[in-house]
């Protein structure tokens, strides 16, 4: 009896030590969860999720204060990626936050622009160039398509355009065969 207790106890100790060692020295280095969530967000910084930007939304998801379905630019694919990362069930996009749309960039009609700088202040990524009473322009390569510059414009001279260069590079997904999964 005592031998059995001793041997099981010894086995338990050895296993425990082994596991403890493994947990310490074989640990896979991973980034903090907020960083990993943030990387899956599209960085549009549009605030449609009701947070100030992607990073605050990531922090809220990590803290359990926000659902994973509040990001319209990320769309269904983004929700799936978040669900995968967090081990949750994917949810349909919350329509209260907006609808999924093709990526677009803002374009300022430079003839109409009055140079009020309101859009420059609204842009979360500093992608609009211009000065007071000067014509403004959007740096297309840096525009995230967040649409935050649309409401402040007093003359409604900003429109969203879908760049077409992408289409030429995108190839259609090959059709799946009947038997193939």
């Amino acid at each position: 009896m005592s031998l059995a207790i001793f041997s099981i106890g010894l086995l338990g100790t050895v296993c425990g030590l082994g596991l403890g060692w493994a947990a310490k020295s074989l640990r896979a280095e991973t980034d903090p969860i907020v960083d990993r969530i943030d990387r899956l967000l599209p960085q549009t910084q549009c605030g449609k999720c009701n947070f100030k930007g992607c990073r605050p939304y990531a922090e809220a998801i990590a803290a359990g204060q926000a659902e994973i379905n509040q990001c319209p630019p990320g769309g269904e694919a983004g929700i799936r990626a978040l669900a995968d990362l967090l081990g949750r069930e994917p949810l349909p996009l919350n329509p209260a936050n907006g609808l999924e749309k093709p990526a677009a960039v803002a374009v300022i009609d430079e003839l109409v622009c009055i140079g009020c700088t309101l859009c420059i202040e609204a842009c979360p990524v500093d992608a609009i160039l211009g000065a007071t009473k000067q014509m403004h322009t959007v740096i297309a390569a840096e525009c995230t398509g967040c649409e935050l510059c649309l409401p402040p414009c007093p003359v409604d001279c900003i429109v969203m355009e879908i760049p077409e260069a992408i289409d030429r590079r995108r190839r259609p997904r090959p059709a799946l065969a009947a038997g193939a999964s």
Partner: peptide, 21 residues
Amino acid sequence: SEHQLLAMERSQSNLARDRYL
């Protein structure tokens, strides 16, 4: 082509993140 676009999207989102921060 998908991977190329993905890489492009990623570099754009990294740029956006940097600029936002």
